[in-house]
Design a protein around this nucleic acid. Structure first.
Length: 257
DNA sequence: ATGTCGGAATTATTCCGA
C-alpha cells in the first residue's frame, strides 16, 4: 500500500496536475492540504474517474484538507476540537485498521505576528487531541504540512533562519510532543542523514538553487512504521508537467507492506 | 527587486496569504 501527503496549493488550479500524479504514482491513500475550496465544489467525479473516493473538509479560498483513497474510508472527525475558527485544517479517517489523519498546520507568518502564538496553541491542541483518540500501540499515520523544520538538517540555511518562523525552539518543542507520544517521522527514520526538502518558494528560483525546507511529513506510530518498506519525497512533481504548473510543495510518499 | 503563485474583490488591477 502506498500512502502520501501533499500540499497542492489550490485544487481548482491543480486538478489536472494531481490527476497526472495519481496516474503516475498510483497511491492508495493520500492526504491533501490547501485544497482552497468548499466541500460542494470538490471534483468528486474527476477523482472517481481516476479510481479514487474522496472525503473533504473544505473551506472557501484558503486552507481545506481532503483524503483521497482507492478504497472507502470512514470519517472519524472533521476539524480539530477548539481550533475550528483557525480554518479547515484537520481530517481524521479510518482506512481498514489504520487511523489516518491529515493536517494543514498554521503557518504562523513571523514570530512577532499574532498567528505565531496561535500556531503554538494549535499544536498543543493537536498533541492533546491525537493523544486522547489514538493508541500509540496501534497503527496510525499523522501526515500533512507541518510548517516547521524539525532540525537544522531540514532547512537550506539554519544559520540565516535560526529563531525565525519554522526554525524556533518553541515550534520544535511542539513537534517533539508528537514524537515523544509515539509518532516517528517516516522519511527521516529511513534516511537519517539525507538533506531533502519538500517545499521551495516559488520566488527567486529557489527550487533550482536548492533553497528549500522539509516541512511535510508522514508521522507513523511504531506498528505503522513496522510496515514501511520505503519512503521518498517526490521532488520530480515539484516541476512543471506537460506545461501544468506545480504546487510549491512536493508529495511525500511511503510504501507499506 | 523578495519580484511567484492562487484566490478574491472587482472588472484588468490590486490586495492578501504563503
Amino acid at each position: 500500500m502506498r500512502i502520501a501527503t501533499w500540499n497542492i496549493n489550490g485544487l481548482n488550479a491543480r486538478l489536472a496536475f494531481v490527476e497526472h500524479w495519481l496516474a503516475a504514482r498510483q497511491p492508495d491513500l493520500v492526504g491533501l492540504q490547501e485544497i482552497k475550496m468548499v466541500d460542494e465544489k470538490f471534483p468528486h467525479l474527476a477523482f472517481e474517474a481516476a479510481g479514487y473516493k474522496a472525503v473533504v473538509h473544505g473551506q472557501k479560498s484558503w486552507n481545506g484538507v481532503a483524503v483521497v483513497s482507492r478504497h472507502e474510508v470512514e470519517v472519524v472527525r472533521r476539524g480539530l476540537p477548539g481550533q475550528e475558527d483557525f480554518g479547515a485544517r484537520f481530517l481524521h479517517v479510518r482506512a481498514g485498521d489504520l487511523d489516518f489523519i491529515t493536517v494543514y498546520c498554521p503557518n504562523g507568518k513571523t514570530v512577532t505576528h499574532d498567528d505565531y502564538p496561535r500556531k503554538l496553541a494549535w499544536y498543543d491542541a493537536l498533541a492533546e487531541h491525537t493523544a486522547s483518540v489514538l493508541d500509540p500501540t496501534r497503527p496510525a499515520i499523522l501526515c500533512g504540512d507541518f510548517n516547521i523544520c524539525p532540525t537544522p538538517l531540514d532547512t537550506w540555511d539554519e544559520s540565516a533562519h535560526s529563531g525565525q518562523i519554522f526554525h524556533t525552539d518553541d515550534e520544535r518543542t511542539r513537534l517533539a510532543r508528537l514524537t515523544d507520544w509515539g509518532f516517528t517521522d517516516v522519511f527521516r527514520a529511513l534516511h537519517p542523514d539525507e538533506q531533502a526538502f519538500s517545499w521551495w518558494d516559488y520566488r527567486g528560483g529557489a527550487f533550482h538553487k536548492k533553497q528549500g525546507l522539509r516541512i511535510d511529513f508522514l508521522l507513523a506510530t511504531a506498528t505503522a512504521l513496522d510496515r514501511v518498506t520505503s519512503a521518498e519525497i517526490d521532488r520530480d512533481y515539484r516541476k512543471k508537467k506537460d506545461g501544468l504548473a506545480a504546487s510549491d510543495h512536493a508529495p511525500v510518499m511511503a510504501d507499506l507492506r
